[in-house]
């Protein structure tokens, strides 16, 4: 995790409540808005969304091509926005037999929330952000993933304007599965690139 838990939660919770009251008094943020935003975020952001996109790409070659050409538009076809409050471009990077992709945001924590759900603590940590660009194989090993030396690893560093999602390789022996069953095989870490399916 970034930082430590040495701060007093009680102090900061009191300050946050005070800020909420001030903003409500000034008519800037209404009383129910905060709860609505939290509920809306928790309901709308999930790796289930990224899994649906992945399963569609595995089963529909034309969709896969559109997804790799213009991720923003292609996830939009399935009803997902890739941006937050401000517009962001989504680029989907595909794992193949010869290339494995991993995403990071070295500067902060940019991440396609809607498609991947809330980001895990480690994604936001200095430990991951600093090291994955320098030693991706070592980081993968920490996650229990070992790839042959012949596989190239590409690390994608997110920016204010561009978010990335990994399109994992479809596991072998899944030819008989339905699109829905395939989506069930996709994990959040698979979409970040710290797992192989």
């Amino acid at each position: 995790m970034s930082g430590t838990d040495t701060h007093d939660d009680a102090v900061i919770s009191r300050q946050v409540r005070r800020l909420e009251s001030l903003l409500e008094e000034k008519g800037i943020v209404g009383g129910d808005t905060v709860d609505e935003v939290i509920d809306g975020f928790l309901a709308g952001a999930s790796p289930v969304n990224g899994a649906k996109v992945t399963a569609r790409a595995w089963t529909d070659p034309a969709y896969r091509e559109r997804l790799l050409a213009d991720g923003t538009a292609a996830v939009g076809e399935l009803g997902f926005s890739s941006g937050g409050v401000q517009k962001q471009r989504l680029r989907v990077v595909e794992n193949t037999a010869g290339t494995h992709n991993i995403i990071v945001c070295t500067l902060c924590s940019c991440y396609p929330l809607r498609l991947l759900g809330p980001s895990p603590g480690w994604y936001k940590s200095e430990a991951y952000r600093s090291r994955v660009v320098r030693d991706p194989r070592g980081v993968l090993a920490d996650f229990g993933v070992t790839l042959p030396e012949s596989v190239d690893i590409t690390v994608w560093d997110s920016s204010a304007e561009t978010r990335y999602m990994v399109l994992p390789r479809r596991p072998a022996g899944t030819d008989d599965l339905s699109e829905e069953e395939l989506a069930g095989l996709v994990t959040r870490n698979g979409l970040i690139g710290t797992a192989v399916l």
């Binding site: 995790m1 990071v104 500067l107 940590s125 430990a127 600093s130 320098r134």
Partner: peptide
Amino acid sequence: GGMTGFGVID
């Protein structure tokens, strides 16, 4: 990015 010394990834 690229710095060392932030310890192990949890």
